[in-house]
Simulated assay, not measured.
Amino acid sequence: MNSKGYDMAKLFSTKLTHVSPVWYDLKSDGDKLVLEGQHNYDAGWVSELQGGVSLVVPRVVLEAFPGVLLLKKKSRNKAIDLIVSECRDKGYDGVVLESWSRWAAYGVLDDPELRHLALQFVKKLGDTLHSTRLKSSTRNHLEFIYVIPAPRMQGLNKQDFGPEDLVQLADSVDGFSLMTYDFSGPQNPGPSAPLKWIRQSLTTLLPAKDSASHMIFLGINFYGNDFVLSKGGGSAITGRDFIHLLEKYKPSLQWDEKSSEHFFIYSDEGARHAVFYPTAMSLSVRLDEAREWGTGLSIWEIGQGLDYFFDIL
């Protein structure tokens, strides 16, 4: 989480049920597993948030090589023990796990046996967290949120997280953080989260609509993108960058009906740029969509937005 995010989390803690600092990576070191990121822990900040209404559930990214992690029962148990022990030692309220995109990159999801082991690992981690009680806690269990990618197309492929996967994990997971952002990139410049794509993702994952919608945290981006149209390339921008560009180039904001997002065009040193960044209107449309489906929200990242975004939540 960026530095401004720490302040925003405290300032708007009454609007945030969970806060997930991006502190941890679980990696392979030869045949060993190592949980990196303990040095990021800020006891005072965690305590201040937990004194309010927010639960602190740090993100753990599973970087470990699948051959080390998934194929050996001893390694799977060790990974779970490292995560749960860190929750117990630091007094966290649970964790957010991100692993699906890494498993896709390693080819795990193309192999039926490895895919099964991967899902079983997520299930066991969730079950272990749910059965772990903290002496200082009045809650029933540690919470477990699992990060899932949004399906890119209506027809699912092997690497997609689908409705069957959701059903299989539902009893072991408290919520699914659905990454309905990053739709476009430097090679295909455009909107960050087209509304049609968001609806399509929800329809694919929740064919019964009301079945597990309460478990979905619909992804909302507080960042934007500045794409270089004539040369290719571009980068993510924060609210501060957005304001700087508006003041420097004084462009006209345009509303894209197809994606329900605002954008503007500007030129710099002969290169044309397209900037997509959230606005009150684009955020309101997505909040309405979340209400209609009965989902929660998952924001990436709270410190990257404009301050008034929290007035809309």
Score class of each variant (00 low, 15 high):
residue 275 V to K: 00
residue 262 H to F: 08
residue 216 I to M: 12
residue 112 P to H: 00
residue 298 S to T: 09
residue 2 N to H: 07
residue 300 W to V: 00
residue 290 A to P: 05
residue 58 P to E: 00
residue 43 A to N: 08
residue 152 R to H: 11
residue 200 Q to D: 11
residue 171 D to E: 07
residue 265 I to T: 13
residue 238 T to E: 12
residue 28 S to A: 09
residue 268 D to W: 07
residue 250 K to I: 14
residue 196 K to A: 11
residue 212 A to K: 05
residue 265 I to K: 12
residue 99 S to E: 15
residue 124 K to W: 10
residue 272 R to C: 07
residue 290 A to Y: 10
residue 198 I to S: 06
residue 222 F to H: 03
residue 251 P to K: 00
residue 61 V to F: 10
residue 83 I to G: 02
residue 132 T to C: 01
residue 230 S to Q: 02
residue 289 E to T: 15
residue 52 G to R: 03
residue 21 P to R: 03
residue 20 S to E: 05
residue 104 A to G: 04
residue 257 E to K: 14
residue 13 S to C: 10
residue 252 S to F: 12
residue 211 S to C: 04
residue 256 D to Q: 04
residue 62 L to G: 11
residue 58 P to W: 03
residue 157 N to Y: 09
residue 208 A to H: 13
residue 186 P to C: 06
residue 166 L to S: 02
residue 214 H to S: 15
residue 25 D to E: 15
residue 149 P to W: 02
residue 74 K to L: 13
residue 121 F to W: 14
residue 296 G to N: 06
residue 175 G to P: 00
residue 272 R to L: 09
residue 239 G to S: 04
residue 230 S to A: 04
residue 135 K to A: 14
residue 280 A to L: 12
residue 293 W to T: 11
residue 115 R to E: 09
residue 165 D to N: 03
residue 233 G to W: 13
residue 138 T to K: 14
residue 61 V to K: 10
residue 115 R to F: 09
residue 295 T to A: 11
residue 49 L to Q: 02
residue 55 L to R: 14
residue 29 D to L: 10
residue 47 S to W: 02
residue 174 D to P: 05
residue 134 L to S: 05
residue 263 F to Y: 14
residue 58 P to Q: 01
residue 192 S to M: 12
residue 115 R to W: 06
residue 221 N to G: 13
residue 143 E to I: 02
residue 137 S to V: 02
residue 252 S to V: 13
residue 143 E to M: 02
residue 170 A to W: 00
residue 110 D to W: 09
residue 56 V to Q: 00
residue 19 V to K: 04
residue 16 L to V: 08
residue 234 G to N: 08
residue 39 H to S: 15
residue 169 L to S: 11
residue 209 K to H: 14
residue 85 S to R: 04
residue 79 A to C: 04
residue 110 D to V: 07
residue 231 K to H: 09
residue 190 G to F: 01
residue 207 P to N: 07
residue 97 L to E: 09
residue 80 I to E: 01
residue 16 L to G: 06
residue 79 A to S: 03
residue 1 M to I: 10
residue 189 P to N: 05
residue 85 S to Y: 09
residue 95 V to S: 03
residue 185 G to K: 13
residue 78 K to M: 11
residue 212 A to N: 07
residue 92 Y to H: 06
